[in-house]
Design a protein around this nucleic acid. Structure first.
Lengths: 174, 174
DNA sequence: CGGTCTCTTGACGGAGTTCAAAGCTAGTGG
DNA sequence: CCACTAGCTTTGAACTCCGTCAAGAGACCG
């Protein structure tokens, strides 16, 4: 990428700071941004039919976060994205991004590769989920993602691992 | 895309036919192709620690199939892709594809969008899986994917929906 | 301190699995 | 074209993992 191209690309990002518990996206809104996290920690979650929060993803420093379905199809979102800690992002708006993608062929390549890596990451997550029971999922999580285990309250980890806090508590004891 | 470009792109595809039960990819091999299915039906599956087959995906006419992780990272695959019926594909080999992607910027765009759509499809699948119990998953599957329900044996549907054949049998009765 | 949020404990229940056996079906070869 | 066999589907009983409910104990923050 030439220096000019990089400038043009970088210029379309905006730095934003979200307070603890602030929302990057709320259910029912359309997602207009891809966020790159400079600092902090966020979660994606939805409310199930009984009003309980179900966490589908965490993201921290150097991760991207968005609701891909809402962002790509520009339809209203089913999920909330919320800061767990105070969080600073570099965020790019959809129409800005589209413009640059047309101007800079290398960007298409970059975002293609990023999307492929997302497919891989999600499929690995599924694989991990399918092959392990609750206990193994928890142990794996604590072992491989200690950053999250430190910074995220237990009941959120339980939700992410698709366990009740009560059952997770049992597992930790025994 | 210009006519020349399209010719160059189309030329890198090869038509192949796989007999029923033939493998498009075997565990341990590296996946070198993306396959577009012209005709037929395939499944992706792995063997769990007890030697039982676990189906992760079906694909039929007009769908793409590959092992994204193995294809992108060129590492040995954990899954098998096998024809359930005799299947004809248009298949493109990785290095051929890479060459064209460099030559034809529009292709990068095409495959970026395709990868994004895969992310959306997989996440929808996960959502569907998380929110429904076994009975609902089966009914949803039969209702929305009748083609599969007709053409795929029951024990494979059970595996795909993550149920035992015995339990699925119960569900159908009651 | 007082209240809300978080984590733990234990009794009970239900969705789904496991195992074993028997009935059914369809493909294959003779 | 039939018979045989291997593969597929059904049944039922015992069992397990994990969720639910209810109650209480800490812990953090104003």
């Amino acid at each position: 990428m030439s220096e000019d191209e990089f400038e043009a690309f970088y210029a379309c990002f905006e730095e934003k700071t979200y307070a603890k518990r602030a929302f990057l996206l709320k259910e029912g809104e359309t997602c207009h941004h891809k966020h790159f996290i400079l600092n902090g920690l966020v979660r994606s979650f939805y409310f199930d039919e009984r009003g309980a929060e179900n966490i589908t993803q965490f993201a921290l420093e150097n991760w991207w976060v968005t609701d891909t379905e809402s962002f790509v199809l520009q339809k209203s979102s089913n999920i909330n994205i919320q800061a767990i800690e105070e969080t600073t992002t570099l965020s790019v708006e959809k129409s800005e991004l589209e413009k640059r993608l047309h101007q800079i062929p290398l960007l298409e390549r970059f975002f293609r590769i990023m999307a492929e890596n997302m497919v891989i990451a999600i499929q690995r997550g599924n694989d991990f989920y399918m092959k392990m029971n609750g206990k193994d999922r928890y142990e794996h999580f604590v072992h491989w993602l200690p950053d999250f285990a430190q910074r995220v309250p237990l009941y959120m980890i339980a939700s992410y691992l698709d366990l009740t806090p009560e059952y997770l508590s049992q597992l930790r004891k025994g």
